[in-house]
Design a protein around this nucleic acid. Structure first.
Lengths: 236, 236
DNA sequence: GTGCAAAACATCGTATACAATCTTGCCACC
DNA sequence: GGTGGCAAGATTGTATACGATGTTTTGCAC
């Protein structure tokens, strides 16, 4: 991992407690160990990680800023439960930025990067064939990592962070509205995109990316769940 | 303000203290009352707003997440001092997303929205001709508001929030590296973009937007300031 | 006079404590 | 029996307190 990717991301290794908790919860959400709508009370989170409410609260507020949890005043924090409209906005945003990211990434990509991308795909394919919850979770993560790696290669850490947010929130949306069992994105499409980049067919790569995002979105059933009483589903 | 714009932004009016402080500081940064590098100690901020360090800290951490302040472990928070590289990334991100936002906005724009945009422009022009610090500050804000309003019209609250971040950070970059006295963006270019939208010449509008961003960037002198001793400039 | 070391200071990191607000369950009253 | 209100519990909002870490200053030795 010393290629054009990850040019940024220097920041001191010593994360300040709250950040560790934030990352842990985020990972749990992205890997769907935490379902949308589950309550994340400050005390519970604090007890779980053996820290005070202060840190738990800080972590939850950070996640709130990323759109992964929603904190309701005087009521508590919950794993975000994106509305169909929100879901559409998330994918609309991805359609908006990912082609651009792809173009920038293609301009700076190194053979090393391509190797790593293909490695990621291999891993992803391996996980897809495996059975079991843990493999499924790892697959979800790997599938998102493809998009994140492109963002990393683009060399723009701002867009990278934005993509991290979008991918994480996409995971929530798919957990909520996804229909097919093939939870994540179509694996082969990732490979096609890489090939198009390698072949320097940039326009085609962008189109493939748009199609790819459209395919993910097409698998969603974005009908409004009863807007009231949505959280009861978890408390029953 | 009841047009296609601001479809979102419902959230309870009762902001939770920390958010008020965050907004106040952000406004101060965007309007350049706070210079890059200025120290924002938790105690000082707390005293200033007559709240405890707890809230001050929360506000600073939120701003840190937006990239407007950088908190250094055990050292304190400072108004962000974007490096030339960061500055380039910010504008690169804007070139990446603003044409897309413009396209979406054009697709949903109402006559009402156009009226408001032109109103904004009028206000901006008026402020440009005025003298004085407060007018200058208002002008800076108005200039950014044009871009933000387009994002609002696009109806995508995620992109809107992202643009808010980018515009705010742009203000910091311009404060640091801007050369011409005409601090903000070229006023007339905003009008040209609106006209192009009205005329349904979408491609031209996008090109104008790209040119516009390029013009802002061209006014910057992105040479590395001595990385050490940057904060002394404010403490002397 | 210069350089290093140690202590004093300032600031952040985290925990705990109390107040405000919302929810829930119970009881009286209609 | 149902409904309204009131009180008890739970949870968040904010403040204060203490410990940890980094910075600066001071004092001593060379």
């Amino acid at each position: 991992m010393k290629s054009a990717a990850k040019a940024q991301q220097a920041e001191d290794s010593a994360e300040t407690g709250a950040q560790q908790i934030r990352d842990a919860i985020r990972e749990a959400i992205v890997e769907r160990r935490l379902s949308p709508g589950t309550k994340l009370s400050e005390s519970d989170v604090g007890n779980l990680f053996n820290v005070s409410r202060t840190l738990a609260r800080a972590a939850l507020q950070a996640l709130s800023y990323e759109g992964l949890v929603s904190v309701e005043k005087n009521r508590g924090a919950f794993v975000a439960y994106p509305s169909p409209d929100e879901a559409r906005q998330i994918f609309s945003a991805r359609r908006l930025v990912e082609p651009g990211i792809l173009r920038e990434a293609a301009a700076r990509i190194t053979p090393d990067d391509i190797t790593h991308l293909r490695q990621l795909l291999l891993e992803e394919g391996r996980l897809m064939s495996e059975r079991g919850q843990t493999a499924r979770r790892a697959e979800i993560k790997a599938s998102g990592d493809f998009h994140l790696m492109l963002a990393a290669i683009s060399g723009n850490s701002i867009m990278q962070r934005f993509m991290e947010e979008l991918v994480a929130r996409s995971s929530l949306v798919i957990a909520l509205y996804g229909q097919s069992t093939a939870s994540s994105c179509g694996h082969s499409e990732h490979g096609d995109i890489i090939s198009a980049i390698e072949a320097d067919e940039l326009d085609r790569a962008c189109q493939l990316m748009l199609d790819h995002i459209a395919h993910i979105e097409a698998d969603l059933d974005l009908r409004e769940r009863k807007s009231l009483g949505l959280k009861e589903a978890f408390e029953l």
